[in-house]
Design a protein around this nucleic acid. Structure first.
Lengths: 333, 333
DNA sequence: ACCCGCTTTGCAAGCGTGTGCAATGGTTCC
DNA sequence: GGAACCATTGCACACGCTTGCAAAGCGGGT
């Protein structure tokens, strides 16, 4: 509760011998100020260490410059990279990221959006979870922009950025088929988020179309540890799969480690593996995992660019393409 | 530039048939409001979707509730975990994290602090880089709290949280010595930050005390890729080291992968490795790396707790203890 | 009936800005 | 010289909130 004593425009004005408006205008791009007064103001501001109060400015302009990033488990490699790309991109367009962690309860996405409203954020970008419609409606009605990344459910007025998960999954199947695999499995978590389920469905559908049945196994959260459990379940079947598509690189890493160290299998000769996300670890030589790269920078760029668009051109759905990155966990390639 | 139309306290007051003060008091813990009016106010607020404007509140109270996290390369496993822990802890004490990325130029830490001042942040927590003294002085003079994590340089009035890097490094040496190693190397990056250098110095000092010379090699940024290069340099020496202390787990992973896949060495029988940070990957069975765990949660808790302390008790330095986590990359244990 | 103390409530000032409006002063053009 | 124009500047109000202050209401004790 320390008394804060930031220097205000009034003090700068006094020191520079001008009116307070002059100070305000000096720091407002495009405002009318003579070269002389601008010089004197900036000088005085420099000496006093003056910085425009963005809280007050936001209050007046009705535009805070704040954008909320709502995310859970943000130390996950993929999420961390996305958060990094987003904050960076926001700064480029002179906005600033407010980070809200929704690790705790389920309703906390709603809680997070309430915070966003309280701080009069210009926009919220949701990377995890799905907020209630009532609260997103309130956001939109209040004039707040909303971006949903890989969230799938429809929200009129929001920007929705999604991957072509289904198509990528089909592509994965084809790749494994061409590699000579004949017994296919899909390793999923129990998170059941739309994009994860889309990958599962796409893979199974592709299998059926080619006359193969796909073994699906689901377990726990989408983590390395779950990958080990899934390996346990899949690789002990009497008909051991020779191709496993993992819903996620993290899972894939866990599964590969278990396959090698517990079951002494060789990848890719005994079993081929494909992942999703292209996290950094996938390129590490212990994994060398063939996987799908999300266009993270493009996602971030598009999301942020949309925030400055006029409401007129609110085309509200962007489909992104996940590119297959060939590495050593699939034969041939 | 969409017109925002958040609902204000005035509207709630009108609807509830009370004064604007009443509604303000309803949302101010500890203020004097009768049960009856509070009920009517909350009801009206609920119907209208009212949320206190934290910008305006911050302006009045001179306390924004905002805390800036200043960090570069935040998708690095260790940093990401720290950021997560900090945001979570901040939310627990009903503050909110503003995330500032300083990946770009060198002066951008200063830039970041200017942003923090502009948004009248109650505090700034610096995880990367070292700001100029003039700007930190301005922060402190303005009544902003400052926390430096693993930044080492002195800043009167700020809280500095550091690890016992030197001591941990000595501990690493002892462990390797006890494992029977006789040829020691230290793998460092060229980042040269105080804590990394402290680890190097501590390790070398311990070596000298026991009559061993430690081979030091430094290369590039503190990444997985650098680890591979360092492996190249260290493992091709005529007297190949049988113990390598890596400044960081990321480096260690890269080094281990190169040692195994390029040089066909077995860990720990051919060479023992110790890392630092205990990132998640260190526990993955491909690495199973003996390393030092930073007390991330405690760091976050202490940092955030300090923000609420009275200025009287500003003890400004906290030494944290990094705990050795025994895994399989060192013989014995 | 009166006074005292306590809780509740409204009024109004103020936080640090942005900006419309009118006034000022200078320059150019006829 | 006067009119017309333009850039610059200061005044004052607004933004949405908190909070000190005083007034109002109320109950109880004498």
């Amino acid at each position: 509760m320390s008394r804060k004593i930031f220097v205000s425009a009034k003090e700068v004005a006094d020191r520079a011998g001008v009116s307070r408006s002059a100070v305000s205008r000096t720091f407002t791009p495009g405002a009318s100020v003579s070269e002389e007064t601008r010089r004197r103001v900036t000088e005085a501001a420099e000496e006093l260490g003056y910085h425009v109060n963005h809280l007050a400015r936001g209050l007046m302009r009705n535009e805070s410059g704040i954008v909320c990033l709502i995310v859970s488990e943000m130390d996950t490699p993929y999420r961390a990279r996305l958060v990094r790309a987003l904050t960076q991109q926001l700064q480029v367009t002179s906005k600033i990221a407010m980070l809200i962690n929704t690790d705790r309860s389920d309703e906390s996405v709603d809680q997070a959006l309430r915070q966003a409203i309280s701080y009069r954020a210009d926009a919220s970008i949701i990377l995890s979870g799905m907020p209630d419609k009532s609260i997103t409606d309130l956001c939109l009605k209040s004039g707040q922009r909303l971006v949903l990344i890989n969230r799938d459910e429809d929200r009129e007025g929001a920007l929705m950025i999604n991957l072509n998960d289904r198509q990528a999954a089909r592509r994965a199947f084809i790749a494994l088929l061409r590699a000579g695999c004949r017994s296919f499995a899909f390793a999923n978590s129990e998170a059941m988020t739309p994009s994860l389920m889309a990958r599962e469905e796409g893979f199974c559908a592709a299998g059926r179309e080619h006359g193969f049945e796909v073994t699906v196994e689901r377990f726990g959260p989408t983590t390395y540890q779950s990958g080990a459990v899934l390996a346990q379940r899949l690789l002990t079947r009497e008909k051991r799969p020779d191709a496993i598509f993992c819903v996620n690189d993290l899972l894939a890493c866990g599964l590969m480690d278990a396959a090698r160290h517990q079951f002494n299998l060789v990848i890719p000769s005994d079993v081929c593996v494909i992942g999703f996300d292209d996290i950094e670890q996938s390129s590490w030589s212990s994994y060398n995992l063939t996987t799908f790269a999300q266009p993270i920078d493009r996602i971030a760029t598009e999301a942020v660019a949309w925030l400055d668009r006029l409401p007129a051109e609110l085309g509200n759905s962007q489909k992104m393409h996940a590119e297959l990155v060939w590495r050593g966990s699939v034969r041939g390639g």
